[in-house]
């Protein structure tokens, strides 16, 4: 009886006043977010702001920043290293992206369409995953061993034993960029491969059956059924890999330190070297802002190229 009365009173209250969430309930979502937003603030937002700020100062090893306006940016565009570095960046990013996309695509179609459900396909894809789970330092050491310029290097040893060459070849002076790209793509392929494989796997079996009944060639199945399905995963991989390649310096630094000379120095490695090897923090920050700007422009271009608006637009028309 008492509860009934309480209910009635509550109902009346609800009718007259708008319902207000108790404070405790209102505070819960923020309580859960708070620790992580603190981490984001300290490790992402503040450094980003600091970088932007630094880019307009002459901060260096003396750690006494002075505001210098756009001087750093002017210096970048008059930097005689810039054309070569931009060229290196473009070659590295475009080749790495193109080759790793192609490989990821070929491997996924081969294992998820032609060898669908076969044990061999699974084993093959697991093999490709290995490079991406090995710690980078170990991975790079492995490549250094393979292309070691002395007689002890794997390739040199092999070629010497076969009698193809008589003296060990210094691979890193001859094809540093090729080695850097090779090491990069082999560890990147697996990411795209996983995404593309699962996208192909989501194609209903009935479509393949219908295609068989309709007498479709393998080419038609790939061009008209599989590839269109991969449009959005391909967009995602292209954008994320491209940003990754434009802003990555880790492998290059470990493999070649940007050398020989500046042959493998990309823009982001250059920013790192300026900031942390030469302690020109202000200048390094300015260069890294350029990297961010390039990534941003490329992303926008790609989104437009892939017609991203079409994906978020509702597709079904009811009538």
């Amino acid at each position: 009886m008492k509860t009934e009365m309480n209910l009635e009173i509550n109902l009346e209250l609800n009718e007259t006043k708008t319902y207000k969430k108790p404070l405790r309930k209102a505070i819960y979502p923020y309580l859960f977010i708070a620790p992580f937003s603190l981490l984001v603030l300290v490790f992402f937002i503040l450094p980003a702001i600091a970088t932007v700020g630094m880019a307009f100062t002459d901060l260096n090893a003396s750690m006494k920043p002075h505001f210098v306006g756009l001087t750093n940016f002017k210096r970048i565009f008059s930097d005689y290293n810039l054309p070569q570095i931009l060229g290196n960046t473009a070659v590295f990013a475009v080749l790495s992206l193109g080759i790793s996309l192609l490989f990821a695509l070929v491997i996924s179609i081969a294992t998820q369409y032609f060898l669908k459900g076969k044990m061999l396909a699974v084993v093959y894809r697991i093999l490709w995953l290995i490079p991406s789970i090995i710690p980078s330092v170990v991975y790079v050491t492995f490549w250094k061993f393979i292309f070691d310029p002395t007689e002890g290097g794997l390739i040199n040893k092999f070629l010497l034993n076969m009698g193809i060459i008589s003296d060990p070849v210094s691979w890193f002076t001859k094809g540093a960029m090729a080695i850097v790209i090779l090491a990069t793509i082999i560890s990147t392929i697996s990411g795209g491969m996983i995404l593309l494989s699962s996208a192909i796997n989501s194609i209903p079996e009935d479509l393949y059956k219908a295609a068989r009944v309709d007498g479709a060639s393998e080419k038609s199945v790939i061009m008209k059924i599989i590839l269109p399905t991969l449009k959005w995963p391909l967009m995602y991989i292209t954008i994320s890999d491209l940003i990754g390649f434009v802003s990555s310096y880790f492998f290059i630094m470990l493999l070649t330190q940007g050398g020989p000379m500046r042959d493998t120095t990309t823009l982001s490695l250059y920013a790192f070297q300026q900031a942390f090897n030469l302690k020109y923090y202000g200048y390094g920050a300015a260069v890294s802002l350029i990297v961010v700007f390039i990534s941003f422009v490329l992303t926008m271009l790609l989104i437009r190229m892939f017609d991203f608006n079409q994906m978020i637009k509702p597709s079904r028309i009811e009538d």
Partner: peptide, 21 residues
Amino acid sequence: VEPKDRNIGMVFQSYALYPHL
């Protein structure tokens, strides 16, 4: 004989229309 050489038409439960055409 392969499906394409049997001169059959087929309608699937899911219709199996090619979504991108």
